[in-house]
């Protein structure tokens, strides 16, 4: 298993390299630069700025410089927030994004699997239809509709929770709810489908034929199998949730890293965009690995050696 993990991590290096290279050249080929957004700068200042940030060098040299810095964990200075380096921005923003994303995932996992399993066990009952209906609604309504509604209802009209901002646990409630709702819906649907399939499997028939109590039949022999597709779904999803949601962070005014991406791209903040790409890709790779390991732990048929 350990050698498998090491092998997987080793094969992530070329992937990362390709991603970094690809995105570096793509963003640099885009028209415009970080300094020509607002009013035109004095040519002399511009020249100095370009020199300071190595923009006067050929692109391939800049690329090698960037790669070198990246290997040392330096993502470069931010252009739009000139007082900060990209690493600074992430070290303050990432914990916030992770806090919200993780809470949402945990809620979605617990709530989603429970609802999905209950619906599957009472297939074609009112409960089932209810869960399926609500889940479809949750999948259908986009976060950018849910977020302002929640903010208006609980923040402005009822005044129970802050409508935006960051600081106390109360600030977390609405963003986490917004993020968790669609994920709960998806997890519930996945769990329901997988549970129904597992309930029809031959080994569950065996468990029933041997008169095992319903708890054993359901929890031991059905749900463990039913959780497998949820695990493979949650991997990439976790990666994207933990790296911040643009919509939620924008609407609730949360200082996470989700916003950096759009801001960075629009402002030609090369280093910020590159940094975001690197962080997100890293999360995706790591979470895919975690999923595979979890899968092997849950399913003895899967072996990596």
């Amino acid at each position: 298993m350990l050698s498998y993990v090491l092998r997987r991590l080793a094969s992530a290096i070329p992937t990362m390299f390709i991603i970094v290279t690809l995105s570096f050249f793509m963003i640099r080929l885009a028209p415009g630069g970080p300094f020509d957004i607002e009013r035109p700068l004095d040519p002399l200042i511009l020249e100095n700025l370009n020199k300071a940030y190595n923009f006067d060098k050929p692109l391939w040299q800049q690329y090698l410089l960037y790669l070198g810095n990246l290997l040392q964990g330096d993502l470069g200075p931010s252009f739009t927030r000139r007082d900060f380096s990209v690493v600074d921005l992430f070290s303050t923003g990432l914990p916030v994004s992770i806090q919200i994303g993780l809470s949402a995932i945990v809620i979605a996992l617990i709530l989603g699997t429970t609802l999905g399993a209950i619906a599957a066990l009472r297939q074609n009952s009112l409960t089932d239809y209810g869960v399926v209906g609500v889940a479809t609604l949750g999948i259908t309504i986009p976060t950018f509709v849910i977020a302002p509604i929640l903010s208006l209802a609980f923040g402005v009209m009822l005044g129970w929770l802050p409508a935006g901002g960051w600081g106390t646990w109360q600030h977390m409630v609405l963003p986490v709810a917004t993020l968790a709702l669609p994920q709960t819906a998806i997890v519930a649907r996945l769990t329901r489908g997988a549970t129904i399939e597992a309930l029809r499997s031959n080994h569950v028939r065996t468990a029933r034929a041997y008169g095992l109590p319903p708890f054993v039949v359901v929890v031991v022999h059905t749900l463990r199998a039913a959780i497998l597709p949820v695990v493979s779904y949650l991997g990439p999803t976790a990666a994207s949730l933990l790296t911040g949601s643009v919509v939620v962070e924008t609407i609730f005014g949360i200082p996470g890293i989700g916003r950096y991406f759009v801001q960075g791209a629009l402002g030609r903040d090369y280093t910020l965009v590159m940094g975001t790409v690197v962080v997100i890709a890293l999360f995706i790779i790591v979470f895919n690995l975690i999923v595979d390991i979890l899968y092997a732990l849950l399913d003895p048929r899967v072996r990596y050696d």
Binding site: N202, H203, R205, T206, V220, H221, A225, L298, D299
Partner: peptide, 10 residues
């Protein structure tokens, strides 16, 4: 079906 009648996970 001896292949599927036992729970593969236990």
């Amino acid at each position: 079906e001896p292949m599927t009648s036992l729970d593969p996970l236990y």
